[in-house]
């Protein structure tokens, strides 16, 4: 499927993001046999995808001290991070592999950034009209 799907901007009711309307998409994350339904924030300003620590734990993943650490920037600079490859699905699009910086930080949402979410999807933002649209790049289904 290569159609364009429209999503609404979502108001957050939790502090400190109270009053914010953000581009969240429902997403399912899969690691082995475990599947987790959650929401991810589209962030064109992020160089990469970021996964909160607890989400990884809920997927049954274990922190691997042998993996090469990633050095993030901004508010995440003080949180350790390591690479994580997950199968993700934003319905109704086909599942695909998304690479995350798995951060030992639980305050953040799941962040979908340039590498490699925006490399795989075209997104049109219309905050003034409270919607955004996603269309996947043509990829081979898993």
């Amino acid at each position: 499927m290569n159609s364009t799907i429209r999503f609404p901007f979502t108001p957050s009711t939790l502090p400190p993001r109270r009053g914010s309307w953000l581009p969240y998409v429902p997403i399912s994350l899969r690691a082995g046999v475990r599947v987790l339904q959650s929401y991810a924030m589209l962030d064109t300003g992020s160089a990469l995808n970021v996964l909160p620590f607890d989400i990884g734990l809920q997927l049954g993943l274990q922190w691997d001290e042998n993996k090469a650490p990633l050095e993030l920037t901004g508010n995440l600079a003080n949180s350790a991070a390591q690479p994580l490859l997950l199968i993700c699905e934003i319905k109704p699009f086909p599942p695909l592999e998304l690479i995350f910086a798995w951060s030992r930080n639980n305050v953040i949402p799941i962040i979908l950034g340039q590498n490699n979410f925006f490399m795989n999807f075209d997104v049109l933002f219309s905050r003034a009209r409270d919607f955004f649209e996603i269309a996947p790049k043509l990829v081979e289904p898993i």
């Binding site: 160089a47 970021v50 050095e71 910086a101 590498n115």
Partner: peptide
């Protein structure tokens, strides 16, 4: 708060290699 790892290019490159 702004959580965007705005210019984390080294980490992004490391993710590309991992991928």
């Amino acid at each position: 708060e702004v959580w965007s790892p705005l210019d984390a290019y080294d980490a992004a490159n490391a993710l590309s290699e991992y991928l």
